[in-house]
Lab assay of single mutants.
Amino acid sequence: HNLTITQGKLFFHYNPKLCLSEIHKMEEVSGTKGRQERNDIALKTNGDQASCENELLKFSYIRTSFDKILLRWEPYWPPDFRDLLGFMLFYKEAPYQNVTEFDGQDACGSNSWTVVDIDPPLRSNDPKSQNHPGWLMRGLKPWTQYAIFVKTLVTFSDERRTYGAKSDIIYVQTDATNPSVPLDPISVSNSSSQIILKWKPPSDPNGNITHYLVFWERQAEDSELFELDYCLKGLKLPSRTWSPPFESEDSQKHNQSEYEDSAGECCSCPKTDSQILKELEESSFRKTFEDYLHNVVFVPRKTSSGTGAEDPRPSRKRRSLGDVGNVTVAVPTVAAFPNTSSTSVPTSPEEHRPFEKVVNKESLVISGLRHFTGYRIELQACNQDTPEERCSVAAYVSARTMPEAKADDIVGPVTHEIFENNVVHLMWQEPKEPNGLIVLYEVSYRRYGDEELHLCVSRKHFALERGCRLRGLSPGNYSVRIRATSLAGNGSWTEPTYFYVTDYLDVPSNIA
């Protein structure tokens, strides 16, 4: 807008934040220059609390790290170098490059900038070799853009010569660093050979998330399962459950009422301010606690030095998902009996873990797994792929695949051998790939016309006998059925096997 004052003059007093240069501009645009008398524009009460600059400061050096910015700028000295009290560095987070010096300023003089007072450097006698002032900004957020400017702080001049310097606002972004852990990993099994893994992005990506790394490792069953005799009275049979499938998407929606109208769909109840505040506090606490764990609990591995020492970490090797089922080394339970199943799973520490690289999504279907087997899954978020990966501390989750139908069934015939004193040795093959492992066998036998009897055969007993022995049988026709019990439950009964026990007292003698 054009402003013209045809008559009258300007009068400025007691404006401590208004620089004289701005008042002189007002004289020019209003056409009143030359009308004012000496005392109409006070030299001592206008701009006496402001830094009124008329020179431009330029930054000469900028260096960044993930949490620091090192700045240096060209030296500046007023005509009387004693008038320079120091520099004021202003900075704040700036997602967009549209910041002005006066953003967030209120009537009390406060604003949204963080201000650092910096002492002037030592003055050199040689004007050509003056030290460049600077400042190291610490405690910054990774991968965050900051708006920065600097200006001088000078003393009051009796001659009211307006001098000083100020830089333009520059924008500097800190470097990326390792992201925080992925949030809320959930693993479920939808079949006997697959596990579905879902997660949420890290709360602090500290860069642009480029991919996720998912490692999985087959877990050995508890050692007590191999040692305890679950045929003993009072000892509860062990059981394991597989990871249940995901709930429906509708039930997972946030901010939804727990109660549904019987007449149909209901609208979600909005969260109160107290609920939102509580969630923010919980989120802040979780982030602080995660940072504490990362800094205190997890110790970084030592990389190899120039002395030739090897990095103890196993090298990563990509495998196809079809090879995942046989990740671990199978060892027989008892070496003397080769027909026992290889369900003991000690994992070799030198073995390469299978892994998958996930790009542009937060889910993965891990296939080719062994049925009813526990897996430990390790999830890392990465925001750099080359020249070397920059990934987060791992988040861990466990899951067990679903049982395989008929995996616990005894394959092959049940054979028998009759000894003296009416002892019958029953023999059968253990299931080759049971659900988890076989903890015991149930032997059901009966003599024709009598009630059915049951015998429990422990895992250890089966390994020693290759089956079991029935003792003290009365003469007669017998039928026997056997079924295995694994961590997933009972298998199917075998087809009945028949044998006849004679009275050993009636056996004919070869003595003449």
Rank of each mutant, 00 (worst) to 15 (best):
E258P: 10
Y448D: 01
P403H: 03
I418Y: 15
G264F: 02
R240K: 11
E442F: 06
E356K: 06
S344G: 13
S262F: 10
E217N: 13
Q219L: 07
D503F: 09
A399S: 14
S248R: 13
V443M: 10
Y500F: 12
E265H: 13
E356G: 12
C456R: 02
N339G: 09
K460Q: 09
A394K: 15
T502N: 10
D261T: 07
G234A: 09
D261H: 08
L379P: 01
G306P: 09
G472H: 08
A463Q: 08
P205K: 15
D506Y: 05
S392M: 01
V329T: 05
G308V: 09
V424I: 01
V327A: 07
P403F: 07
C391H: 05
A399L: 10
N339R: 10
L453N: 15
S474A: 09
H425Y: 14
F337T: 14
S363D: 03
G306D: 12
A263L: 11
R301W: 03
N360T: 11
C468Q: 03
Y498K: 15
F462R: 14
C267E: 05
I410S: 03
T373L: 10
V329P: 12
L453C: 02
R353H: 06
S257A: 10
R319E: 13
E249L: 05
L437G: 04
L277V: 01
Y230E: 03
S257N: 10
H254S: 15
N435L: 00
V327E: 12
Y441I: 11
S248P: 13
R353I: 14
V443F: 01
T497R: 12
Y259K: 09
G325V: 10
P270D: 15
P300V: 10
R218M: 11
S251K: 14
K432Y: 12
L321V: 11
N435R: 00
S315T: 14
E356C: 13
K287M: 07
A394Y: 06
P431M: 02
P431H: 00
N490C: 11
S367C: 13
P238R: 11
G325H: 13
C266Y: 06
V324E: 03
G374Q: 13
S284I: 00
K278D: 11
G489N: 11
N383L: 11
K317L: 10
G467T: 04
E350Q: 11
T373A: 09
P300F: 10
F226N: 09
E465Y: 13
D273I: 12
R301L: 09
T415L: 14
Y448A: 08
E433Y: 12
S248K: 15
H352T: 06
T272P: 06
R459S: 14
V414N: 01
P300N: 06
K271G: 06
Y504Q: 08
P354Y: 14
D261P: 10
Q380H: 08
L228D: 15
K271A: 14
C231M: 02
V327R: 10
D506T: 06
C267W: 01
N383A: 06
V345G: 09
D409R: 08
G234L: 10
Q256T: 06
R447I: 07
F355L: 10
E282R: 13
N435K: 00
G322K: 04
D385R: 08
L455P: 01
Q380S: 10
N435V: 00
P245D: 11
G308M: 15
V331I: 14
D323R: 15
E417C: 02
H294Y: 13
T272E: 08
S367V: 09
Q384S: 14
D222N: 13
P431R: 01
N295F: 15
V457H: 02
H294A: 03
L232D: 13
L455Y: 10
M402L: 07
H454V: 10
T502D: 09
K406Q: 11
K406I: 11
T485Y: 10
Y478S: 00
P332H: 10
E420L: 10
G306F: 10
T401R: 00
C269L: 09
L235F: 08
V439C: 13
R286T: 15
R376F: 09
V414G: 01
V414R: 02
K406Y: 05
M427L: 12
P354G: 12
R301A: 07
K287F: 14
E227I: 08
A395Q: 02
G412W: 13
E221D: 08
V439R: 07
S223Q: 14
H352R: 10
H352F: 14
V443R: 00
S268V: 11
G374L: 11
S239H: 04
H371P: 10
H211I: 04
K287V: 14
V358Q: 14
A220V: 05
Y504G: 10
W428Y: 01
Q219N: 07
P434L: 01
C391N: 01
S474D: 06
K406D: 06
Y478L: 00
A330L: 15
F372R: 07
E224Q: 05
T210G: 10
P338N: 07
E356F: 07
N206D: 02
T303I: 02
N208M: 10
I418P: 11
Q275S: 10
P349L: 10
F246M: 15
R313S: 07
R353S: 11
A220E: 13
A484E: 13
S251W: 00
S315H: 11
R316S: 07
S262E: 01
C269H: 02
N383Y: 02
